[in-house]
């Protein structure tokens, strides 16, 4: 640390320092303020965007309830183009697919769900895949269904594995492969999966009892 003899020397030193560094201080401060303002602006902007997307999605939900398909499709497209980075894209897709499936357009529903199946949001992706498999069951694409389930990384399936197991069972039943179906259903039960029909489905596959051999 420098030691100054007099007050004047001290003032001189300060002046000198300011001459050398003043500009960078001003620039630094300016930059800092600009950064803060920019960040706030960005946050506000982001928040505003999410709010707009949410409002559109709420409208979409209402229209879906009233079964206004055209309006739902229009809103979904708007969300996708204007607010592509929000989760509302996935949500609206799920609702679009439902309306299509309800109206009997299973192929259309499938296309939409296939898009969501690659969503980085693991939960949405799993939901989309589960629904895809159920559509495949309805369109008799049993092997494709099994392939889809087999392609899923067990890690990513996490708590959905019970749901997948039950669907695997359904696919095997449809293919007439009863033993494999039973194994799949039992695995669903072990995974703590609770569905209203699971126990019925297992019971329905009970293996026949043969007469006990006479005791020796």
């Amino acid at each position: 640390m420098e030691i100054y003899d007099t007050e004047e020397a001290q003032v001189e030193a300060l002046k000198r320092w300011w001459k050398e560094n003043g500009q960078s201080v001003v620039i630094g401060l300016g930059l800092g303020i600009a950064l803060i303002l920019g960040w706030n602006y960005w946050q506000d902007h982001k928040k505003q965007k999410i709010n707009q997307a949410s409002a559109l999605f709420e409208q979409l939900q209402k229209d879906a309830e009233a079964n206004k398909k055209d309006s739902v499709d229009k809103l979904a497209t708007q969300i996708k183009t204007q607010f592509g980075s929000t989760e509302y894209v996935g949500f609206s897709g799920l609702i679009q697919a439902k309306l299509k499936a309800q109206a009997g357009d299973l192929a259309g529903a499938k296309t939409i769900l296939q898009g969501i199946a690659s969503n980085p949001n693991k939960e949405l992706a799993n939901i989309a895949k589960l629904r895809l498999v159920r559509l495949m069951l309805a369109t008799k694409e049993y092997e494709q269904g099994l392939q889809l389930i087999n392609s899923i990384d067990p890690q990513a399936a996490s708590s959905f594995s019970g749901n997948y197991d039950e669907l695997t069972g359904d696919l095997y039943v449809a293919l007439g492969r009863v033993d494999e179906a039973r194994t799949a259903y039992e695995s669903a039960l072990r995974n703590g999966h609770q569905s209203p029909l699971l126990q019925y489905k297992i019971d329905d596959l009970a293996s026949a009892e043969s007469p006990t051999a006479p005791k020796k």
Binding site: A64, A101, L137, D204
Partner: peptide, 20 residues
């Protein structure tokens, strides 16, 4: 967004009645 977007296919409905 999850529960209200769920649907039942004709297969699901038939399957339900078939067993129930």
């Amino acid at each position: 967004s999850i529960t209200e977007s769920s649907f039942a296919t004709p297969y699901d409905v038939e399957g339900f009645f078939k067993i129930h």
